[in-house]
Structures are given as C-alpha cells and as structure tokens.
Amino acid sequence: MSLKVERVQGDRGVESFYLWNVVQGLAVTVRHAVTNLRAPRAVQTTNYPEEKKVMPPGYRGKHRLVPRPDGSPKCTACMMCATVCPARCINIEAGEHPDPTIEKFPVQFDIDLLKCVFCGYCVEACPVDAIRMDSGVYTFAEFNRSDFVAHKEQLLATLSQWAEPR
C-alpha cells in the first residue's frame, strides 16, 4: 500500500477558504431546525410509551390462544405446535374434553418466551388456527425468569392488536 498525493479538485480559489461552503451547510441545518421548531408535532418520532405503533400485518409478536365463543381455548391439544417448535418451548398437558366432538383440550399450555425464537412455526402448524402471534406485543419485561413463561390464562387473555383479527 502506498499513499499517492493527488490534487483534489475544488480546493483552490474561493473554495479553499471553506467559508462560503460552511455558510451553505449552515443554511441547510437551520432550515431543518426552523421547520421542526415551527411544527414540533410533525416530527416523525413516535413518543413511545404515550404513543404506540400498530405493528404491520404478519408481525410476530407475543402469542395468544384464540378463544371459542364460550371463552375456552380453541386448541385441541394436538401437540402439532409443540412438535414443530424448534426451540421446544411449548409445554402442553392434554385433558379429556366433556364434549366428545372436541375430544381433547389443554389443561396446561405454557410457552417459555425466553426460549422462543419467534419463528412462527407454531402458528403455521396449528390445524385449527388456535394459536396466533398477532397481538403486536413486542415488549417483554419481567422481574423473574419464571414470569416469562406465559400460561394458558395469560395467552387466552392476550388480544389481537386489531379489533377485527385478520
């Protein structure tokens, strides 16, 4: 490697003083500053805790279990999701459902969110569309590791971010 000395164009004459270029640059920044000062509410930034964004469709947020009209989970404890899960973080315990047409239901349905890689395979694998990731929740914060395991009740209580789930 060697350094080659080259004359850089534009470094002679008036431009070699930089002053006019500096003034041009200053004009650009002050234009931005004045625009934003006059309309501070037009700044694109989301003021996070007060304003929340609706995540785009297909965004994989925290899981939720889709309820039936009577509020019990739609899940039939078929173990498809638990089987496909690459992180092995779904733990289902099946029980017999009183309704013979349904056969089984999850007595226990835990997802360890610390292990989950948010791949969405569980959603794809479910034959009855009982698990979805359309809650739009992307902030997980707890004080204990054990609190990161989402239980059936929490998963059922989590709602879709849209009133009309797509």
């Binding site: 920044t29 002050v30 931005h32 500053a33 934003n36 501070p40 700044v43 694109q44």
Partner: peptide
C-alpha cells in the same frame, strides 16, 4: 435540543 431539531428528532423530553 438544537441537534435534535436539526436532525428531525424531538430530542430529550
């Protein structure tokens, strides 16, 4: 704050 406004941000708030 000035830096924020020049860079189209709201700055510390």
């Amino acid at each position: 704050k000035g830096a924020a406004f020049m860079q189209d941000r709201p700055g510390p708030n």
